[in-house]
Simulated scan of single mutants.
Amino acid sequence: MSNIVDKMPTAAKKMRLGRFWRTSGLLWVLVALCIAAALISPAFLNPFNIVNVLRQVALFGIVSIGLTFVILTAGIDLSVGSIVAVVAVSSALLLQIGIPVPLVILAGLAVGMAMGAVNGLGVTLGRLPPFIMTLGMMVMGRGLAMTISDGHPIRFPDASDDFAWLGQGHLLGLPVPVWLFVTVAALAYFVLRFTPFGRNIYAVGSNPEAARLSGINVGLTIFSVYVISGALAALTALIFISRLTVGEPVAGVGLELEAIAITVIGGTSLFGGEGGVIGTVIGAAIFAVIANILNLAGVSPFTQQIVKGAIIVAAVLFEAQRRRRNGSAS
């Protein structure tokens, strides 16, 4: 027993060192991609294009941070795209009938949290595999969005200028969504790094049975991360419709796959218990730059889907091989 205790600080140092090198590697990949983008098209360095990239980083990043919480518990959330759609059409409908903007924002967040809570209850109380539960919610949510909107976009009046600021406004020279992303990332980093709840998430993802025996409420922890994921998907939806001034029932199609790709690229293990917000932030930046490079190079949207799928497969293969190497080394 004493030998195990003696080895714990060394193991923790190795884990921190491993995270440092992975994060450093991601930063170098991002720098290399930016240089490549500038060489492929000088338009990449255009300030207008840079702002667009940052806005994409924010939109991808906010929902990916929510997914990071879920994946750290060895779960998955395939419903975030459908949550975006439901919140988009329901919030647009509320704006259309003249509900005050603050109430619309609160209602939108509440809808996202409620859908996340249903996912959490299905996984914890219903004991459904996260893949099955969130896949079902993905289908139900998309159907609900179509039902609310009758399959048509919902436009809201131009009188909602205050709401438009959420997605179109600027603060200190940067788009408001970027500031929201920075705030969400900072709060998520603090929660995961410095709070008991954050430590519980890592413990549950690493070994749920050991976490349960140590007194952690595993069910409540898992339930909470799905609520967080739903809330951040809802925030993404509010930013999205604020920018477009229309609630689309097809909003968020494929967003769950992009968020998974970003989270995995950022170093969060699909097997749980390893990863973090900083990696997800860099992963969102890498993903947005890759998408921007493909657009600037004139690659068709269909081919871009092939590239995104290949990125997901490559990231998961890399993670699986890394875990096998670590397992054999130990």
Rank of each mutant, 00 (worst) to 15 (best):
I4L: 10
K7W: 10
M8V: 15
P9G: 05
T10D: 14
R16T: 13
R19T: 10
R22F: 11
L27P: 07
V29I: 14
L30F: 08
V31G: 03
A32W: 00
L33R: 02
C34N: 02
C34F: 00
A36K: 07
A36L: 14
A37K: 00
L39N: 13
L39I: 14
I40R: 12
F48I: 13
N49A: 04
L59N: 05
V63D: 08
G66E: 04
L67E: 07
L72I: 10
G75Y: 08
S79T: 03
V80M: 15
S82F: 12
V86G: 07
V87T: 04
V89W: 08
S90K: 05
S91F: 04
A92H: 09
L94D: 10
I97S: 01
V104E: 08
G108K: 02
A110K: 09
M115N: 10
G116V: 07
A117W: 05
G122F: 05
G122K: 02
G122R: 03
V123T: 01
V123L: 04
L128P: 05
L128Y: 04
P129E: 14
T134E: 09
M138H: 12
M138C: 13
V139D: 13
M146K: 08
M146Y: 13
M146I: 07
R155S: 15
P157G: 12
D158E: 11
A159F: 06
A159G: 13
S160G: 11
S160Y: 10
A164H: 12
W165T: 07
W165L: 12
L166R: 02
Q168I: 05
H170M: 12
L171Q: 03
V178I: 11
W179P: 07
F181W: 03
T183M: 14
V184G: 03
A186R: 01
F190C: 04
V191L: 03
P196G: 04
G198L: 06
N207H: 06
P208Q: 14
R212D: 10
V218G: 02
G219D: 11
L220S: 13
I222H: 02
F223L: 12
V225H: 01
I228M: 02
S229M: 06
G230V: 10
A237M: 13
I239N: 08
F240A: 04
L244T: 13
T245L: 05
A251N: 09
G252P: 04
F271G: 08
G275E: 05
G276P: 03
V277R: 09
I282K: 00
G283Y: 00
I286N: 00
I286A: 01
I290Q: 01
I290E: 01
A297K: 05
G298Y: 00
S300E: 04
F302C: 03
I311M: 12
V313P: 10
V316S: 08
V316K: 10
F318K: 11
F318H: 12
A320M: 15
R324T: 13
R325F: 11
R325Q: 11
G327Q: 15
